[in-house]
Amino acid sequence: MKKIRAEALVFLGILILLFIFVNSYMGVSNFFKTLMLTAHDLLINTVFFIMSIAVITGAFSGLLFEFGVADLIDVLLKPFIKPLYNLPGVAAMGILTTYFSDNPAIIALAKDKRFMKNFEKWQQPLLCNLGTSFGMGLIVSTFMVAQGVRMGINLFPAVLIGNIGALVGSVTSVRIFSFYTKRELGNSSNEKFVSEKYYSSSRHGSIMERFLEALLDGGKSGVDIGIGIIPGVLVISTFVMIITFGPKDPSIGYQGLAYEGIPILPYIGKKIFVILKWLFGFSSPELIAFPLTSLGSTGAALALIPKFIDMNIVTPNDIAVFTAMGMTWSGYLSTHIAMMDELGYRHLTGKAILSHTVGGLVAGIVAHLMYLFM
């Protein structure tokens, strides 16, 4: 009971100090007005836009799996999986499922004994970092390409570079993590199937029936992803916006408008801007908000892009870096613990997170360097 009371008192103390701090800058009335208006605008103009992309990409990926295109890609990728990740070729299916959906899709595969029999014990935890590296990949890529319309330029080359950066980041993450898993779990092998084939099953019926069912079921999965990102976008993005941008018109001061706030992140960004510029080529201190938000929710991070574009502080290099880091991290801090728990390796969660943090940084650096040279 004493512990609960102490926790409550500490929390209330922090809350009061926060309100005093906010009131000294914005005023409590303006703060709550900004809070509501920002969340509402994010819901209408960002969440629904991301959801529409998720529905279309979900329907598209449903068709790829239904008519065997994903299986064909899987076969083509297998020769590269072993040298890159030191994993069985069937791990390519994990990359595809997460790229077309989200991080937890790898867990559905991990629950299938046919799939897991192909992996040695030390390789099984690596599926967490492998899948997370490509989570929401298609949605992130499509969203970034679509922003080219707002910027008036073709962003496809930058997004492609970002995807390559994410690939390098994933290899880095998996390879670093494998160092720990080998040490913890040893190199003992499982009894493997003779064949590593793991193909998706098709629906019954005519081609048209299968086409429509795959299209609609894939679209429904996009709706689920769109609904799933709402808490992250509205809570995390609203908070990040409030500590990223200042008053809309500094000469007037705070008016309680959407996206106003106390520019704490730009202040931090300015202090380390030389490092950010050198590592990622960021053009503005405010851009530090994207990778930080990606740690908890990529959907929330994507919500920042339109605002950055409106402020005219984003370049194609930044889009390449955002794509790489957004894909590689894809909100891993909010999913890694649960995913490692589902895989049965909770005790390795810290090592998995450390490895993936490095992987995301490498992804951003590689994307920046590739953009400079290409």
Rank of each mutant, 00 (worst) to 15 (best):
I242Y: 12
I242D: 04
I243F: 08
G246W: 12
G246T: 09
G246F: 15
P247V: 11
D249Y: 15
D249L: 13
P250D: 02
S251G: 05
I252M: 13
I252E: 12
I252N: 02
Y254I: 06
Y254H: 11
G256K: 10
L257D: 11
L257W: 14
L257S: 07
A258M: 11
Y259H: 12
Y259I: 07
G261I: 08
I262M: 12
P263Q: 08
P263D: 07
P263L: 10
I264A: 07
P266A: 04
P266L: 03
P266R: 03
I268G: 00
G269P: 05
K270C: 04
K270Q: 13
K270A: 07
K271F: 13
K271P: 00
K271M: 06
I272V: 12
I272R: 01
I272D: 01
F273I: 05
F273Q: 11
F273K: 03
V274W: 15
V274R: 11
V274F: 15
W278L: 05
F280W: 14
F282D: 00
F282R: 04
S283W: 10
S283K: 10
S283L: 05
P285D: 06
E286D: 02
E286L: 03
L287G: 02
L287D: 00
I288C: 02
I288V: 08
A289M: 06
L292V: 04
L292G: 01
S294Y: 05
S294D: 08
S294K: 00
L295C: 01
L295A: 02
G296C: 08
T298V: 12
T298L: 06
T298K: 01
G299W: 12
A300F: 13
A300S: 12
L302K: 02
L304D: 07
I305R: 01
K307A: 14
K307E: 11
F308C: 04
F308G: 04
N312S: 14
V314K: 02
N317A: 15
N317V: 13
V321R: 09
V321N: 08
T323G: 09
A324R: 04
A324Q: 05
G326C: 08
G326D: 09
M327W: 13
M327Y: 11
T328A: 13
G331R: 02
G331I: 14
Y332K: 03
L333P: 00
L333E: 02
L333C: 00
S334W: 08
S334T: 09
H336R: 01
I337Y: 11
I337R: 01
A338T: 10
M339L: 05
M339P: 00
D341K: 14
D341H: 10
D341V: 07
E342V: 05
L343I: 11
L343R: 04
L343V: 08
G344R: 07
G344K: 11
G344D: 11
Y345N: 01
Y345K: 02
Y345P: 01
Y345D: 06
Y345T: 09
R346W: 05
H347S: 14
H347Y: 15
H347I: 12
A352H: 06
I353K: 03
I353T: 09
L354R: 03
L354N: 02
S355R: 09
S355Q: 03
V358T: 06
G359K: 10
G360M: 05
V362F: 13
I365S: 00
A367C: 00
A367W: 08
A367N: 01
